[in-house]
Write a protein that binds this DNA or RNA. Structure first.
Lengths: 227, 227
DNA sequence: CTTCAAAAATGGGTCAATTCATTTTTTGAA
DNA sequence: TTCAAAAAATGAATTGACCCATTTTTGAAG
């Protein structure tokens, strides 16, 4: 039976990844050495490379773990979405941002994004790009759900709209991460403002936009209070 | 007079930067060594570090040169903008993309963006972030010009709108750059489509502003599996 | 023309990621 | 149990970015 071998191998992989995660989070990416990771995982430095292509690969592998979690949260929201589209999208995208920052800080996110770009051709690099694609598609799914309930025009191209809204979120997140002194609240405020504008359109005069009822969305996260 | 000294120093800086640019473009960022740059610039390796903090610094310094050029092109467009806002923004943003690719290819752009993220705290890293900000502001300037001519509602927040539209452009550019096999034309097509949608808004009734759009196709991509 | 302090250049040293030839361990079969 | 092939682990060697103590060059005052 190969299962023992497979289990041991998987275990070692997990050990190395766990060690890397602890050190990356504690000391940062640059100040963590492969040798340190190997030591903590009780293997030789060379062994790390039997499981991961590079130091950056380790980092992206860590992020890939969280990716599933993020999408699960989103799926739950889509199952029972807020009636107002703006509020629903705000909530979904805010969830992405919050979740991203639970385990990984700004500094690490800079390294993650940088690595994802330089390693775009490697499996984990592609995986990262795909995660972005999946999240954009999840936004699209949310829009489609709202569309089904008559909260959005049937003519709306949900795919494209999802990409646009996710792009807004992603850009804000990147700007936030790049600037050590930008507070999360400020970033969210700008993001919510832009999400609203995308829904209403740049051409439409401000008041006209809401299609069905002129009901001024009450339950909006209009004033998200200081966090 | 110190001008001779200053001139020589500036000259050496230029030489090093020029050498770096040639080698980066010819061999790529990773395959170019500081030693190679030093040799081509006829200086010792250590001297490079008297002018630039790191290899990445050299790369960002190169991009900073082009930044001015890009904005000059945009300024010309703003002086005599197309009457239609969508066409005007399309033109401006397409200009950004085209200009970015004149001297630097996808592979190098991946390194540029990655370096800008990891070196966000250094002067050139901040300079790169500021360039993004300036370009977004230029989009805003274009919108303001159109607003002055009555082509856009006076209620439009041009600043925010500029950021949104630039975010759309930037995200597409990043996706394009990350995927070696994505053709420029495909990226532009998607970008133009999204720019139009941002102008029209996601909740606007479709008939209002979309004259020639095909019916949305049946969902070709459904959520793959319940994970 | 000297001299000297500041500026610049130098290149050998350090450190860490990555590679790879070699050794050790595991597996399934005899 | 024993054995040979395959898989995995190993750690020393390679490589290249970056640092820094030292040397060289510069500018202008005497």
């Amino acid at each position: 039976m190969t299962s023992l071998r497979v289990r041991q191998k998987a275990g070692r992989r997990r050990d190395i990844l766990a060690a890397a995660g602890e050190l990356f989070r504690r000391d940062g990416f640059d100040r963590t050495s492969i040798e340190g990771i190997a030591e903590r995982a009780a293997v030789a430095p060379g062994t790390v490379y039997n499981y991961f292509r590079s130091k950056g690969d380790l980092l992206l592998a860590l992020v890939a773990l969280d990716g599933e979690e993020i999408r699960a949260d989103g799926k739950r929201l889509i199952a029972r979405p807020p009636a107002d589209p703006v509020a629903a999208v705000n909530r979904l995208l805010e969830g992405y941002v919050d979740h991203a920052l639970v385990y990984l800080d700004k500094r690490l996110w800079r390294n993650i994004m940088a690595t994802a770009l330089t390693q775009a051709a490697t499996p984990f690099g592609q995986g990262y790009a795909e995660l972005d694609g999946k999240l954009a598609r999840q936004v699209a799914d949310l829009l489609a759900a709202l569309q089904d309930r008559g909260r959005l025009p049937t003519t709306l191209r949900c795919d494209d709209a999802g990409q646009i809204l996710f792009a807004v979120c992603n850009t804000h997140f990147m700007t936030f991460v790049a600037q050590d002194d930008m507070p999360l609240a400020a970033m969210k405020e700008a993001m919510f403002r832009h999400i609203r504008m995308v829904f209403e359109g740049l051409i439409a005069p401000a008041g006209t936009a809401t299609p069905e009822r002129k009901r001024p969305q009450a339950d909006e996260r209009r004033e998200p209070l200081a966090t």
